[in-house]
């Protein structure tokens, strides 16, 4: 297991370098003046421009630039926003909010997704199953920002059950509605994945053998069907945590949640490319680490993987 973890960790290194290089390359080595890219095309004071040139070492060859950028990334020296705040400090303030939001969304996905998926899978072809299936298709088809506006309008404005926008401190209870919106699409995927997995496993030979041993129906379902079916679901949930952090950009925009996504959204609108690059790089790291955790989780859940 330790060996396995180590190997997975080693495999992560090229992905980390590749992804950050990709981001960096896109911004700094594509045609056009990177300063223009960083400034969002707006005119800026020579002092700001000079600061940017220094921050990104634009007078150096590309590879040295990239190396210094990595060094800055690792040491969290991410430069300043246009208004002169440290980007690292801004991210540090916004990050806990997004983390809270993503964890709530993940919990909603996990609880309701697995619950509905298991019921639908065990009763394949029945009314509940068909209803859930159609509902999940609809949820997947409706874009998150439409869902966000509709729920904001209905639940927040018309019914008044929740605040349509989140206040500065972003306490847990105000984040429920945004978390539902954020998690809803993935929820639909979790339901469908769980359902497929359950109904496939129900027909597995070892389930029939378990039944033939004289186990109760309940035990067969919990010990043999559920445990095996949840392996792909947990993998999906783990990978989704990283995606939720990135996907929060739309949801946080709609509900005005002061998180990383919102930060990114505003930085894009203002054309603060330096901030955009910094935030995206951080998100890539989160995503890569989340994937590592998922791999380890997967190996822990499925003994066949560990020895490969």
């Amino acid at each position: 297991m330790v060996m396995f973890a180590f190997r997975r960790f080693l495999q992560l290194i090229p992905v980390f370098f590749g992804a950050t290089l990709l981001v960096y390359f896109l911004v700094f080595a594509t045609p056009g003046d990177p300063i223009a890219a960083l400034s969002g095309g707006k005119p800026m004071a020579p002092a700001v421009e000079a600061a940017l040139r220094a921050q990104y070492n634009l007078d150096q060859p590309f590879w040295i630039q990239y190396g210094l950028y990595l060094k800055n990334l690792v040491t969290l020296n991410l430069g300043q926003t246009f208004s002169g705040q440290e980007v690292s400090a801004v991210i540090a303030r916004a990050y806990p909010v997004t983390a809270r939001l993503a964890i709530m969304a993940l919990a909603i996905e996990a609880i309701f997704g697995v619950l509905f998926g298991v019921i639908a899978g065990l009763r394949k072809g029945k009314l509940f199953d068909s209803t859930v299936l159609v509902a999940s298709l609809v949820v997947i088809a409706v874009p998150t920002f439409v869902l966000g506006f509709v729920l904001q309008l209905v639940v927040g404005v018309k019914l008044g059950w929740a605040r349509p926008t989140v206040s500065g401190a972003a306490p847990w209870n105000e984040l429920i509605l945004p978390a539902v919106v954020l998690g809803l699409v993935s929820l639909a995927y979790v339901i469908r994945l769980t359902r497929t997995s359950i109904s496939e496993n129900m027909n597995a030979d070892y389930v029939r053998t378990a039944t033939a041993k004289g186990l109760s129906r309940r035990r067969v379902v919990v010990v043999h069907i559920l445990r095996n079916s949840l392996i792909p679901v947990i993998t999906f949930l783990g990978a989704d945590l990283g995606a939720l952090m990135g996907g929060a950009i739309v949801t946080e925009g709609i509900f005005n949640v002061p998180g990383v996504g919102n930060l990114l959204y505003k930085a894009i609108l203002k054309g603060e490319s330096a901030t955009v690059v910094a935030v995206v790089s951080i998100l890539v790291i989160v995503f890569v680490v989340a994937n590592l955790i998922v791999d380890l989780l997967y190996a822990w859940l499925d003994p066949r993987i560990r020895y490969v």
Binding site: F16, L22, V23, A243, G246, G247, I249, V250, L283, N291
Partner: peptide
Amino acid sequence: ALPMILGAII
């Protein structure tokens, strides 16, 4: 490692 929307934004 780079979700589609993030990459497209960049």
